[in-house]
């Protein structure tokens, strides 16, 4: 009896330690996030005071006259992210379906490893590949093709130099693809076989099973995976800096050069010596922070709503 009691107390002791370590970790995360936010606001106060809300809507970025506006960077960040997601999401879901449902296990394993390797490549390599290999291909094949067939759309009408918003978006899609694919693939593998087999048993085709059972079952996790990719696309720096052309101007054409928040920071932080310049750059960082935060909140919100209406298993 006595022995039992000590065991119990030692158990509760280790439990307490575990609990307090967990609490400390949570607090630390919270403190770091708030700390970053407070620091960003504090250090950008000069620019916030000077420009106010017009910072978000001004296109001009002129270190000589000290007029700074984030509009072109915000636009570039959103445009490249939208392009990346529009390409990467359908593609990675298809790849994941093929790997988990249709392919021979051996092929699935081999291709799976290849895709995970894509995720391990440093972003600067993507940037250099983009500049040296992909940009010339863009300017010689894809851009002339798009302009010829869809040139009536303003977004595909411009100077075909292979460097610009569209190229950056496509590179981002390649970078985001492995993240979404590997998560979605795991999700599909976790769909209970009983569910799929019963659907097949009722005479469903592969397509019907896929779209009515497999995808619906894992929908919330798929959306989660997409937001993981979205986070990466929003903040990607080096690869984008190489191929986007770094221009502070919003242009109707996706062929034209643009910039993103992250690429502007990468380019200009080292040489920004005047206080207002530096503080404007930090405010740009703050904008990215808030943007990412809003995306996360929206994602959570949407997920919760979707879970309610669809059900779904994971």
């Amino acid at each position: 009896m006595k022995k039992n009691k000590t065991e119990c107390s030692s158990l509760s002791f280790s439990d307490t330690i575990f609990k307090s370590i967990s609490i400390i970790s949570v607090c630390l995360t919270f403190i770091i996030v708030t700390g970053i936010f407070v620091q960003l606001v504090w250090n950008s106060r000069e620019s916030i005071e000077k420009f106010g809300f017009s910072f978000l809507f001004t296109q001009q970025w002129n270190p000589v006259t000290s007029v700074f506006g984030a509009a072109s960077s915000i636009y570039g960040t959103l445009a490249t992210t939208v392009i990346a997601m529009a390409i990467a999401v359908p593609l990675s879901i298809l790849v994941a379906l093929f790997l988990s449902e249709l392919a021979h296990p051996l092929i699935s394993k081999f291709v799976g490893i290849c895709i995970e390797l894509l995720a391990a490549i440093p972003s600067i390599i993507y940037g250099m590949w983009g500049l040296f290999v992909f940009a010339p291909v863009m300017s010689k094949t894809l851009q002339p093709f798009l302009q010829k067939n869809f040139g009536f759309l303003k977004i595909f009408n411009g100077h075909k130099i292979g460097i610009g918003v569209l190229t950056a978006g496509i590179i981002l899609a390649v970078m985001v693809l492995p993240f979404i694919t590997s998560v979605v693939c795991d999700v599909f593998k976790m769909v209970p076989n009983v569910l799929k087999e019963s659907a097949y048993g009722m005479g469903s085709t592969t397509w019907e099973v896929t779209h009515k059972v497999t995808i619906r079952y894992g929908l919330s996790s798929i959306v989660g995976a997409c937001f993981l990719g979205l986070g990466r696309a929003l903040g990607e720096t080096m690869a984008v800096t190489f191929v986007i052309g770094n221009r502070h101007k919003i242009s109707a054409s996706l062929f034209d050069a643009g910039n993103t928040i992250a690429s502007t920071l990468a380019n200009e932080f080292a040489e920004a010596s005047e206080p207002l310049y530096l503080s404007s750059l930090i405010e740009l960082g703050l904008v990215l922070f808030v943007l990412t935060f809003i995306m996360q909140v929206l994602a959570q919100f949407w997920l919760a709503k979707m879970k309610k209406s669809f059900g779904g298993g994971l």
Partner: peptide
């Protein structure tokens, strides 16, 4: 660093 009227920027 100036506000370039035209062109593309490289690092």
């Amino acid at each position: 660093k100036v506000s370039w009227p035209i062109g593309i920027g490289a690092k």
